[in-house]
Design a protein around this nucleic acid. Structure first.
Length: 563
RNA sequence: GUCUCAGUAGCUCAGUAGGAUAGAGCAACAGUUUCCUAAACUGUGGGUCGGAGGUUCGAAUCCUCUCUGGGACGCCA
């Protein structure tokens, strides 16, 4: 809210400095009910200091608020309800939006600081499931929001491209694989080989040894193993990038697990030098008793490293390579303990910057109330869901707007938008029960609803021949527009809060509220009616399009001008 | 067992660093297109905010305990 500080200062003077301005500002709130004005100041806490009844204090203060911006003050019980000068404020807000366009709501708090974001991170040779969707979509939106707040995000796709599983995959391919089949449908074919390997291995333990042997060869740099691994990786990545393209997600780095292979000895050495390693059951661990955490496993009893070791190496590399001010990990809540341990180990090793690392957890995609398992093949594939969603969008266009020119493009934007928004609209931590029906709902609080609102607004602007002009003299009281205006005013606060809390749902909910307010407005007000307020109304409609479009962009969604 | 997340309308969820009568969407029912795209809008019904204590002028929100469900807890990531 723009004017909190201003009101706080006036109250500060009125109270003759008895209470610090910051405290006053914190007490000021936005009333839920618009009848209670635009800002409210409850006087309960003052009652103790002043030793007077709260309502009496409110009464006394009300006389002392004189300002062009605060045009009316009402006392209701212990509350001081303050009303803004609608004309002054509305025109200020709208001119700001017209001048700044997409930059409206941008901030500088980040001061160009680099923030690495570990996100998406699918496993090579495995399908891109709905589970990976969350990390991708949440991470992408956080990167956009942080960028808007002045940070410089670096998106890192920490691919699962190393491990014993690749030995098994190579072994399976050598036995039953077919070049052409893999080329045609890489992930499906590789997954089939992987599944077959496990099935066969149950009755034939030789296979396990074969798999291990191939992974050993891979680690030792065997040409054949390495080239097969490279090939699987390339093919998988090709398939993943189809999905990323569809969702408009890009990465600054694809350095995955394999990348850190040669960087782990150093980590072990550092931990050894600092005497943090302890032997336990032939394995090397870092004890974290003082931190009240279970020990962190660094080396297996056979000397091999583990994912904690790899993540430590990655953390070091990222700090040295990027000099981040924050390092974010958008990874499921199941791994919360792992990240606590990771940060604790780094701190113990004397790396103070470990405090700049933040795990951003999120709830799981559930199927029938349970975690989805890749093993049973019952996993839901993201690409199929997206295709289905696009098809439904396409069908809707055919029904509702058959004359639309670029139907395929719009269907893509709407279909993908529905899936993205469904994931972002709620608190990250909530588990999501997978439901196609729910996800592909296009009415109510959904992505398509927001895009539709935007398209309608654009349509009005087209019909009204709206041209962007600055500092036009408006002729309007802004009474009916006020609710929308006050929401537009709040945009930067919302962005700010979303950034501080790494929470895209704040933005998502805000756009829904804005869209609802706007839909209500133009359902009862005829924007294009020829009278002296027409220009002001069009300016408002334009402002709404700017903010909705920018809000959607921050979620990673597109805003078609017609649909 | 320890740690952790969640529990608000039939369903899915909001509830802004405790505040004024607890809000949306979906579903149900009843309406709105000679009028800017009905993917919209209007109205109706629906709640012991899991439970019990406590702090406070004031608690869905903070503290303690408790119940229910999810998840994690050394050689997978």
């Amino acid at each position: 809210m723009y004017f909190k500080k201003e009101l706080a200062e006036i109250l500060f003077d009125a109270l003759e400095g008895e209470i610090p301005v910051q405290d006053l500002e914190r007490l000021i709130e936005k009333p839920k009910n618009s009848e209670h004005g635009d800002l409210a100041f409850p006087c309960f806490t003052l009652a103790k200091v002043k030793k007077k009844a709260p309502s009496q204090i409110a009464q006394e203060l009300s006389g002392k608020i004189q300002s062009d911006t605060f045009i009316k003050v009402e006392v209701v019980g212990a509350y001081l309800n303050v009303f803004l000068n609608k004309k002054l404020v509305a025109e200020q807000v709208i001119n700001e939006i017209i001048a700044q366009k997409g930059d409206y709501g941008s901030q500088k708090v980040g001061q160009g600081g680099i923030v690495t974001i570990d996100m998406s991170s699918p496993n090579i040779a495995k399908p891109f499931s709905m589970g990976h969707l969350r990390s991708t979509v949440i991470g992408n939106s956080i990167s956009l929001i942080m960028e808007k707040c002045g940070y410089k995000p670096i998106k890192i796709n920490h691919l699962g491209d190393w491990g014993t599983q690749f030995g098994k995959l190579i072994a399976a391919y050598k036995r039953w694989g077919d070049v052409e089949k893999v080329k045609q449908n890489p992930i499906k074919e590789l997954l089939a080989l992987y599944v077959k390997f496990h099935e066969e291995a149950e009755g034939n333990p030789v296979l396990e040894d074969e798999g291990r042997a191939w992974f050993k060869k891979l680690e030792e740099g065997d040409i054949e193993a390495l080239s097969l691994w490279q090939w699987f990786r390339d093919e998988s990545l090709k398939e993943f990038s189809r999905i990323y393209d569809l969702m408009n997600v890009t990465f600054d780095s694809y350095a995955g697990e394999a990348f850190y292979n040669d960087k782990m000895d150093r980590v072990v050495k550092i931990l050894m030098e600092k005497q943090l390693l302890t032997e336990s059951d032939q394995a090397q661990v870092v004890l974290l008793e003082e931190e009240q955490l279970p020990p962190c496993l660094i080396k297996k009893s056979d000397g091999a490293t583990l994912y904690a070791t790899r993540d430590l190496a990655a953390a070091l590399y990222r700090k040295e390579n990027y000099q981040f001010v924050q390092s974010l990990y958008v990874v499921g809540h199941e791994q919360s303990l792992h990240f606590k341990q990771l940060i604790a180990v780094l701190k113990k090793a004397g790396f103070d910057w470990a405090e700049e690392m933040v795990h951003i957890p999120f709830g799981m995609m559930l199927k029938d109330g349970k975690k989805m398992s890749t093993r049973k093949g019952k996993v839901v594939l993201l690409e199929e869901v997206l295709k289905e969603s696009i098809a439904i969008a396409r069908k809707n266009i055919e029904e509702k707007n058959p004359n639309l020119v670029n139907k395929d493009e719009v269907a893509k934007q709407v279909g993908v938008g529905a899936v993205i928004f469904h994931d972002l609209k709620n608190n990250r931590m909530n588990d999501i029960e997978f439901s196609l029906e729910e996800m592909l709902r296009f009415e109510g609080e959904t992505g398509p609803y927001l895009q539709y609102t935007y398209a309608r607004a654009c349509s009005i602007l087209r019909k009204g021949n709206w041209q962007v002009t600055l500092t036009e003299k408006y002729k309007a009281s802004w009474e009916k527009e006020w609710k929308v205006v006050s929401m537009l005013m709040n945009f930067s606060n919302v962005v700010n809060r979303a950034c501080e809390n790494y929470d895209p749902s704040q933005v998502a909910k805000y756009i829904v509220d804005l869209a609802q307010a706007f839909n209500k407005y133009y359902a009862e007000v005829k924007v294009l009616e020829e009278n002296e307020e027409r220009y002001a109304r069009l300016a408002l409609v334009y402002s709404v399009t700017v903010v909705i479009k920018e809000g959607l962009r921050l979620l990673g969604m597109e805003a078609p001008e017609e649909m």
